[in-house]
Write a protein that binds this DNA or RNA. Structure first.
Length: 661
DNA sequence: GTAGGGTTAG
């Protein structure tokens, strides 16, 4: 190898690597290639390292070389190992380097911090800081940005922000755009959009001009909140400052517009992008595809996929997953499987999402055993099921009432050493509640706090519903008190559960006293709350009160929906007030609210119970004319009434013809 | 024109 061909400019790094390569490759039988020819000279290509063994072997070769490779080569090696996720190996090699007295650099040290952080050990990452001091390496923005990111990754938001503030306050290091972006991203991803925006404004006032990243983070946060106008305003603000938004900013906004159903604006943004010579990428198309799938337009989504291929943008695993999920959502399991097969045909590796989507689709259709087959298959393919996989299957078994199997899945999850999350508990607790096994449900509920988890609103709501279902009202009340003092802030669904529960057991006064408390703050209450109240009062013989409340709703500016009309109609039917019920049916339609299947079935049952068969037949014709039909409850009641009074049959000619057919 | 920290999709 002609060493002299390497110019002096390329000293140090390349020189030593080339030198190293020559001595190494001649003595190595390794099958992988670590070198490539660039402009006639051989340079080492660290990216060709395939596995941990390769990296470790290389390291040991490097440390025995004379002269030693320069610190840049060690740095490259370590960062390639980090890319391969061998964090602890990096740390161990670093320690060997220290023992051997090989010089280190700021680059090497920040990679050590990064390794600890990526292992979710930010606490250990801080122990690297004294090594800087000992070696006379000064701290820089990278040092702390890496630490801040590590803290966020462990959800230690306060610590991260505190560190950032300390750096600024004590002038330990000047934050740059990247450090700001890291803090902003950490905050925005945890819902602190306002603080994220404040940091952007702080940058604008201070010495650090925000760049495209800082703006993009804010835009994305606003979009995730559905604040699309604000996001578009920021986009325009950027343009005015001659900071040109890139595809990422546009993708964020398009995603927001799709998720919040503003499809016309999607088109506008799309053409705006193309006019700026910014062409939609795979991410843009995936956003569109997902938006369409979530609206149930899976075939349109497939068209988008065709379109992107025509435009030279290759669909990736996310594209296929989105479409699979789309088909699962509308119950077209066969098509979802078809997409999975195409994915395999195309040579794209399915990932954990692909398998979880299929598993979930199967479970939702009650095919839990097939879902278990998928789980076996993924293990064979080297994709380890995660907590979501297990949760989906547990939920599947709960949904079809096979609680023992659900419990078995939970036990396997624990055996595998996978940490159950709050969803796992909620699913299983819900399963036990539905089977009215409240003792076991409560036992699981208590277990949550021992697992470094916290019961959330859903947990409380599930347990409360379960307790009311079996009539353990005292325990339910206790649990609510406990929730108010130590749990999440009760929301409307919790109050709905309480109100519904009280009415169910005739505790009208308690329900009304809670309702009156809620009503003092109108934000606490919605149409569904009134629905529960009207239903509860009607069922407890207080139809007049129910009707009075119903009548004041419109004047309160609430838009009455089909459910609340149906509840009121049910109340009338319960008291045999069929004329009032029928009047209400007409009135709702006049008000632009059309009765549905439930509404008609309720009135039909009302007539049937009062043996007003002629009226019932008239209504039946109306409902069938509108494409509605009897539901199971009505059919059952009809059969019962006929068996008691066969002459009914003669009054319903339609049933005769049905019978003859 | 050597190496470390930041933004979008399931």
């Amino acid at each position: 190898m002609a060493m002299s061909k390497i110019s002096l400019r390329e000293c140090n790094g390349i020189l030593s690597i080339s030198f190293f390569h020559i001595s190494y490759s001649s003595s190595s039988s390794s099958s992988y290639s670590r070198s490539s020819k660039v402009k006639g000279r051989i340079v080492l290509n660290f990216e060709k390292l395939k596995c941990l063994d390769d990296a470790v072997t290389l390291f040991h070769q490097m440390v025995t070389m004379k002269p030693l490779p320069c610190v840049v080569d060690f740095s490259k090696l370590f960062n390639n190992m980090i890319k391969m996720k061998h964090y602890s190996a990096v740390l161990s090699l670093f320690r060997q380097m220290q023992k051997l007295g090989i010089p280190i650099s700021d680059f090497i040290l920040s990679s050590m911090i990064n390794s600890y952080c990526l292992m979710h050990r930010a606490d250990y990452a801080f122990s690297v800081l004294p090594i800087y001091l000992k070696n006379g390496v000064s701290f820089d923005a990278v040092t702390f940005t890496t630490l801040i990111r590590g803290l966020f990754a462990e959800n230690k938001v306060k610590d991260a922000v505190e560190l950032f503030k300390k750096l600024v306050r004590e002038k330990i290091c000047d934050p740059d755009e990247i450090m700001y972006a890291t803090v902003m991203n950490g905050l925005s991803k945890r819902g602190h959009t306002h603080k994220t925006l404040s940091l952007l404004r702080l940058m604008e006032q201070g010495n650090t001009e925000p760049n495209i990243y800082n703006y993009s983070i804010v835009i994305d946060a606003l979009c995730k909140d559905g604040n699309l106008d604000a996001a578009i305003n920021i986009l325009n603000e950027m343009k005015q400052k001659n900071i040109y938004p890139n595809i990422v900013a546009y993708n964020s906004i398009i995603d927001g517009l799709c998720k919040f159903g503003q499809w016309e604006k999607v088109t506008t943004l799309f053409s705006e992008m193309v006019n700026l010579n910014m062409y939609p990428d795979v991410c843009t198309f995936n956003i569109l595809t997902d938006g369409l799938c979530k609206e149930g337009k899976v075939e349109d989504a497939e068209e988008v996929m065709k379109h992107m291929v025509e435009k030279g943008v290759e669909p990736n695993v996310i594209t296929y997953n989105v479409i699979m999920d789309g088909y699962c959502l509308c119950g077209q399991l066969d098509r979802a499987r078809g997409i999975f097969d195409i994915l395999i045909d195309k040579g794209i590796e399915p990932d954990i999402f692909s398998y979880n989507i299929l598993t979930d689709g199967l479970c939702k259709e009650g095919k839990v055993e097939d879902a278990e087959e998928v789980m076996k298959h993924m293990v064979e393919k080297g994709v380890e099921p995660n907590v979501i996989t297990y949760n989906v299957i547990m939920d599947g078994y709960c949904l079809c009432g096979q609680l023992d199997r659900a419990q078995r899945i939970f036990d396997i999850l624990i055996d595998k050493g996978i940490e159950p999350d709050i969803f796992s508990y909620n699913i299983l607790i819900n399963g036990y509640c539905k089977k009215k096994k409240l003792t076991k449900a409560m036992q699981l509920f208590r277990e949550i706090s021992h697992k470094r988890l916290k019961p959330n609103i859903v947990t409380y709501n599930t347990i409360l519903q379960g307790l009311f279902e079996v009539g353990r009202i005292g325990v339910a009340k206790q649990l609510f008190v406990e929730m108010v003092s130590t749990g999440p802030v009760p929301n409307l669904s919790i109050y709905h559960t309480l109100l519904d529960g009280y009415f169910k057991y005739g505790l009208v006064e308690e329900a009304m006293s809670l309702f009156n408390k809620l009503e003092t703050n109108k934000e606490n209450i919605d149409i569904e709350s009134y629905n529960i109240i009207i239903n509860g009062l009607s069922k407890n013989g207080e139809l007049d009160k129910a009707h009075a409340i119903f009548q004041k709703l419109s004047s309160m500016g609430l838009l009455l929906d089909v459910r609340i009309y149906t509840t009121m109609i049910t109340g009338f039917c319960l008291q045999g007030l069929l004329d009032e019920a029928k009047d209400m049916l007409r009135k709702m339609e006049e008000n632009g609210c059309f009765p549905n299947n439930v509404t008609y079935n309720v009135i039909v049952r009302g007539y049937l119970r009062c043996r007003k068969i002629n009226e019932m037949v008239t209504l039946m014709k109306e409902m069938t004319g509108r494409g509605f039909s009897f539901d199971a409850t009505t059919a059952k009641l009809l059969v019962k009434e006929i068996s008691e009074n066969p002459s009914i049959l003669d009054m319903i000619p339609e049933l005769h013809t049905e019978k003859k057919k």
